[in-house]
Design a protein around this nucleic acid. Structure first.
Lengths: 345, 345
DNA sequence: CTGAAAGCGCTTACAG
DNA sequence: CTGAAAGCGCTTACAG
């Protein structure tokens, strides 16, 4: 292993000077700089990041702004776990994380959490930008302070996040359609129900629907796709009456639920004793998995939210500690989960 | 951050003594040991692994015994890439890896490579135990020298590997059957072709077939499953005549190929202009992906071989550097890849 | 513009 | 049984 000391000896300079050259710090004459650079190249020297972080003795704080997981919607517990695991991994690099959780159905709580982060003097921020308008405003403060931030799960292209980690929603809907397509006949009809609450705060859901419809338009225009908006996600009676109406109107063979609330539709099918409906939904929360196990849900499309959290923190840590610039976006896996692989996907 | 120095001060001892206690090294009186342990607990002290590896100044060598990727079968290029990435990650922990590649169709080359590893004085070995009998013999030498080893991709339960990383083959076949099942009718017939070469060196393939058949026996016994052994994987004429015979005999609606040679079956279907056959196979090699794109293959079942290599090395590195004992086995994902998610799964 | 020296947190050979 | 000191590879405040 070549060390700074080796390089210094070869170049007839002190280790301090080599260090200055490596990090492009000022105060080295052009001549010695070129000389040292040549020797570094010749020996294919690479700095020992371990020794470097130890010597730097610098610590970094990352603020994390994500929704709190609730019993109705536990989706966000997965990114949280991933973030906690990553935090453990980077602890020895003196990087710490602090959570600022908000209620994903309450924009005020988002604004409050965001303001707390702004006061906290963080070196970087990981954000699930659930509320678009608020995010546009609040990230300006980060931009002004030159604090880097990364979006997970939801992308807002117009802003200055140094990276985005999340699924290509259109593609995932397109995939959902393919899966539906292999299960139904040319003359069948498919229902796409949307819950009001979801649509308000997640543009991704519309993209999923777009992807789903595009597939059938391109490949099987004979299949009829119909939409319905269910006005209240929290009231099962409302869900029931909305769906009852749809089932009266048309002869539905399949349902594509573009959100993690798939289990609510399953619950309806189960309680109304409607059989032989092909059902495709999103995300492996406990409720969904139960209906997957019961064969009421056929396929769940997933995005590995654990990894979104984990990679988000790792990426920011690498950026802070090793000055490693991330790619502009990382598309998460589009994973298909069935009853048969639900324990290993 | 609490350091050894802090603990030493509180305990009125030197840092050396604290270090001895932390690592359970001998030469500390019971009394001081208990005292120091108490203080460590009180302060929730955890050792800084970065400083530790730097001070230890110890290096480790991992030998890697996997098949070489060939143009016909590039599967093993993925684990190799994962191993190379992991090697990069752990370089600063002074862990290095060396490849010993063998021809997966030539047991002699396996034995030779293995012997070279035994002579190389490695601290740990990562093995793809393609040849069962040879592995049983050769690992005895590792056992005798107390050199830890991990199996990837192929499991041999009877041996003393400290861990296994790979897919549950039975389950993957079971999943394949589910996918086939949603695409075919009750009266349809399914063909399961096996290539001679494959069966010789991979028990996993039989397990895949077992899983596939079990599903239909349990859920849809009306579907007829037939086998055929194709005697030569390298001669397309042989493949063609074997399959021609099968297609004459029965009315095949679907084919399940339990190996990564799926593309050979696709080639047959394409060249013979046989349409509307549902085709499910294994692994995302370039050839398979091309037929997936052309809609000739419907589903590929994958095991993320990149991660198998990556995690195998990481696990061994953690074991060597941090003394972290791994679990006995890690089941890789069983991933479903379609034309629609082939770029992100 | 350059070097000598102290320090990051842990480990260990040596002395007592 | 215990401590003082040197060292792992890099960084930096200080002196010149």
């Amino acid at each position: 292993m070549t060390t700074i000391k080796d390089i210094a000896k070869k170049a007839n300079v002190s280790t301090g000077t080599v260090d200055r050259v490596i990090h492009n710090r000022p105060g080295v004459s052009k001549k010695t700089k070129a000389h040292i650079e040549k020797i570094i190249k010749e020996h294919n020297f690479q700095i020992n990041t371990i020794a470097s972080t130890l010597a730097l003795n610098k610590s970094y704080k990352i603020g994390v702004l994500i929704p709190e997981a609730s019993s109705e919607n536990e989706f966000w517990s997965e990114p949280k776990k991933g973030i906690e695991k990553a935090t453990e991994d980077i602890k020895n690099f003196r990087v710490s994380t602090s959570f600022f959780l908000f209620n994903q159905f309450d924009s005020q709580s988002y604004t409050t959490a965001f303001s707390n982060i702004l006061e906290g003097e963080f070196d970087a921020v990981l954000i699930a930008p659930v509320f678009q308008k608020e995010t546009s405003q609040l990230t300006q403060a980060l931009d002004k302070k030159n604090i880097p931030y990364v979006f997970i799960n939801i992308q807002i292209n117009s802003l200055n996040a140094i990276s985005f980690i999340g699924q290509d929603s259109f593609k995932s809907g397109y995939l959902g359609a393919k899966l539906m397509s292999v299960m139904i006949a040319d003359t069948d009809e498919v229902l796409v129900p949307v819950f009001r609450l979801n649509t308000d705060n997640n543009a991704g859901i519309y993209e999923r629907i777009n992807g789903f419809k595009s597939y059938f338009e391109e490949k099987r225009p004979s299949v009829k796709i119909s939409n319905t908006v269910i006005p209240d996600v929290n009231n099962f009676e409302v869900i029931k009456s909305s769906l009852d109406k749809e089932f009266e109107k048309t002869n539905i063979a399949g349902i594509f639920v573009p959100s993690s609330s798939t289990y609510l539709i399953s619950k309806y099918l189960e309680s109304s004793n409607i059989k032989n409906i092909r059902l495709i939904g999103y995300d492996t929360n406990q409720e969904n998995l139960q209906y997957l196990k019961k064969d009421i849900i056929d396929f769940l499309i997933c995005q590995n939210p654990y990894l979104q959290g984990f990679n988000g923190i790792k990426l920011l840590s690498d950026y802070l500690v090793m000055n490693k610039m991330p790619e502009g976006k990382y598309h998460s896996a589009i994973t298909i989960v069935t009853r048969e692989n639900m324990e290993a996907y």
